[in-house]
Design a protein around this nucleic acid. Sequence first.
DNA 1: CGTCGTAGCTTAACCGATAAAGTAAACTCC
DNA 2: GGAGTTTACTTTATCGGTTAAGCTACGACG
Lengths: 354, 354
Amino acid sequence: MAKRVRLIDIAERLNLTKVSVSKALRDHPDISKETRELVKKTAAEMGYTPNLLARSLSSRRSNTLGLVVPKIAHTFFSTVIDAVQEEATKAGYGIVLAVSSERAELERQHIERLLAMRVDGLLVSVSKEQPDRAIYEHVRQMNVPLVFFDRRIEDMGFSSVTVADRDGARLAVDYLIEQGYRRIAHIAGSSEVEIGRERRAGYEEALRRHGLPVPAHWVIEGGFDEQHGYDAFRRILQTGDLPEAVFAATFPIGLGVYRAICEHSVALCRSIQIVTFGEGGLNEFYTYPHLCVRQPTREMGRRAVEVLLAEIEALDAGREAEAPRHVVLETELVLPPDYPLAPLDGTPAHTPAG
Amino acid sequence: MAKRVRLIDIAERLNLTKVSVSKALRDHPDISKETRELVKKTAAEMGYTPNLLARSLSSRRSNTLGLVVPKIAHTFFSTVIDAVQEEATKAGYGIVLAVSSERAELERQHIERLLAMRVDGLLVSVSKEQPDRAIYEHVRQMNVPLVFFDRRIEDMGFSSVTVADRDGARLAVDYLIEQGYRRIAHIAGSSEVEIGRERRAGYEEALRRHGLPVPAHWVIEGGFDEQHGYDAFRRILQTGDLPEAVFAATFPIGLGVYRAICEHSVALCRSIQIVTFGEGGLNEFYTYPHLCVRQPTREMGRRAVEVLLAEIEALDAGREAEAPRHVVLETELVLPPDYPLAPLDGTPAHTPAG
DNA sequence: CGTCGTAGCTTAACCGATAAAGTAAACTCC
DNA sequence: GGAGTTTACTTTATCGGTTAAGCTACGACG
């Protein structure tokens, strides 16, 4: 069993002190050029790997960011994670990932652990459950920068990067109405979370603007996943009173709705128009062309890291906590041009270019 | 700015030493029941969070596992990650995630960093590029347990958890042949990686067993992603000589093939049967019913953690490195019962239950 | 020529915990 | 009632680094 090489091992070999070796490796001007190079060469030869634990402990910087997401097997989040990783790596930071599985308690535990690991900053997208505010107070008290992305807690004074949820939702539903749809259902997310409330608000706004009533029996709240979409639409199917279009608060919800419809009747799944907030990355393969509100996913990850790093820098430059920044990204309504929307007379209209 | 609470702060408040406090918090029998409780209460009141860096440094255990995957926005990996997280959390370990983006150099850097962080063990699925063996030698030399999952390097003496790739591939292709298909293409993965070679070998075995020739022009190697599937099948389309079925080495490859076919002709995409190794989690929504080889994804994650933890335990129980374990999981051929396969006469056969 | 600055190291202290060894008082036990 | 155990702490050393403050020899400068 090979012992791990430490600074002191290199130092002894070269008749130097560990401090000199440490400095040499970090290109400290105290050390002469020749010594520096000799040290580096020797370190490489001996297979030295610095102990980041020790380094972080004494330097008080871990060069690590904590990333907490509610879910991972969801294109939106895995894309954000990817972007965050990329951006963090560029800046010399590693990331520690934690998945809360949409549960507030797990979210709490994970943040606790990340704090204990002394991450330099946190990127968080909250779970769908009522959050445990105490843990965020704790973050604040420990003076660790935190940036929410996508799903935030609005009133805790942390920075955030989000999309214009209400606008995006409103524009999508506006579009449906302009195309002649009148009977529009909304499978909403959780009202515990801002994005759930905002997307719903956008939906209602659009309806009201056009003088349409909000059909309470067609607005169903719940989670953000496929299961919720499926269950919710099954409830609608059971009433027998069907909408012409469905605005789904997330892509997975849309999938669930679609599945529920198809199971019920294949013809139907071509005549009820689905619009999802967010996309799945598989739109081309998705049987029926659906509209979607595109979010700048990778940019969200990048911007979140950017804001967080700025706060970290501000912090160790000694500047006291500045006002939180709130970055709001625009969305874009995507309509596959080759495909007609679902017709209003209930007949299939799917005639992709072939 | 709140100072962070340390053991010594609690100790001073209670007129104890930090060692006693440390022991009290860890329920060491040295400390009386009353003191223990007093300490815990005080610690909670003061908002104490242990510094895991310091703890890990002195105890030589970080209680952290490093997880390296080639890709994250892919159902297979995000599912494994999820399972790993769950299992690791249960056992009191955190995970540090790193994504190599299918590049050997990034993989190297990430592993280097994880070693430097002194993770207690590593879980790795290698990138599609020729791996840098030196880094794995380094892992070995540092005596850090490592378990490969899904994609491994066969001859480096590390444990692994994989699926029976060759068998799964062979059974799938066998099935196609039994159904009467004869002209079967294979869009293979990278031959740098064992799973790429094995799946291809299974495909060829099945053909040979049935006395069919291996159609070299229909076997195209490359990456594991959608792009490769798309590009590869476009090449086949250009030749004008089309197969009756395609065996795709991964689900994303299958999607790419499907896209290429649909773009070319919608009718065609219902008459060329696609079989994928692995699934996307969206099979129900996938336009044409395709066969797939189901991998026990979550189980792979669980088993990998299990094997790794066993090695970690063995290590700090002082037992010397035992022989590596190789867990091979069985796959299952999934054929959606409601849906007929693509007909051999080239006419659409898609008539899902409605 | 004495003083100051500086290049190039070294020494000492510390980061925040754990591990191992030491100690004083109380408690057993024949 | 004195030796041996326990009980409940304390003291000292260590983990592998970093930071801050010495120290020394050499060259420049007024």
